[in-house]
């Protein structure tokens, strides 16, 4: 099979976003790169089914996501190591505010249900349109929108909890946080 030099260049230039999507999906950089590797191999052998002129990144995301979920189904009983690793770092990390914020956010992101996390990443970071993202996740555009909204609401709850445990030292009593509070409040307010 001859792959046009242009398509090969496009493939290469899609790798960075493919890796970013993979990391956000599985939460583990090493495993993410294995996913990317598999994706590239699979994409290469199926290049004839890619219609040139459409979004190559979206096509690759779709392949990567399918690999991830079929693997995930096999490994269902494994706990994703990202949660534990990040939580452990959080628990012992010194209070370096800027860096902590970053870790807090990543940890919170990994706590989202996968369908919400991928929706948020595809829409909020990868630059895909709702239509393209819905194509990647094989769902309706409306479903994609509601996943993004639920992801944002859930993140607000999670970030509130993480920050409050940092802050507790300053205000000399341990606040009892009810994670539902923020969700309830903001889902009532709920507008974008």
């Amino acid at each position: 099979m001859t792959v046009s030099p242009q398509l090969k260049r496009d493939l290469i230039s899609s790798i960075p976003s493919l890796r970013a999507f993979a990391v956000s999906l599985c939460g583990n950089p090493d495993r993410a790169d294995d996913l990317v590797q598999e994706t590239l191999m699979k994409a290469w052998s199926n290049l004839t089914s890619f219609s040139e002129g459409t979004n190559l990144a979206a096509w690759l995301f779709t392949i990567l996501r399918n690999i991830y979920y079929s693997e995930y189904r096999k490994r269902r009983r494994e706990v994703p190591d990202s949660d534990g690793a990040i939580a452990a770092r959080l628990a012992t990390a010194p209070a370096q505010s800027g860096h902590m914020d970053f870790l807090d956010f990543r940890a919170a992101l990994q706590k989202l249900p996968t369908d919400q996390r991928e929706a948020l990443i595809l829409i909020g970071a990868s630059g895909l349109s709702y239509e393209e993202a819905a194509g990647v996740c094989n769902c309706a555009i409306g479903t994609m929108k509601s996943r993004v909204n639920r992801a944002r609401n859930r993140l607000v709850e999670l970030l509130a909890i993480v920050s409050s445990s940092d802050y507790a030292a300053d205000i000399d009593w341990q606040p009892g946080i009810d994670s539902l509070i923020m969700g309830q409040r903001f889902s009532r307010t709920g507008s974008d």
């Binding site: 960075p16 890796r19 950089p29 970053f102 970071a125 990868s126």
Partner: peptide
């Protein structure tokens, strides 16, 4: 934050293995 997390990976050089 979302963009920062994503761009953090996007801005890394492409690993030679790929």
């Amino acid at each position: 934050q979302l963009q920062a997390v994503y761009d953090d990976v996007v801005s890394q050089p492409i690993p030679d293995r790929f």
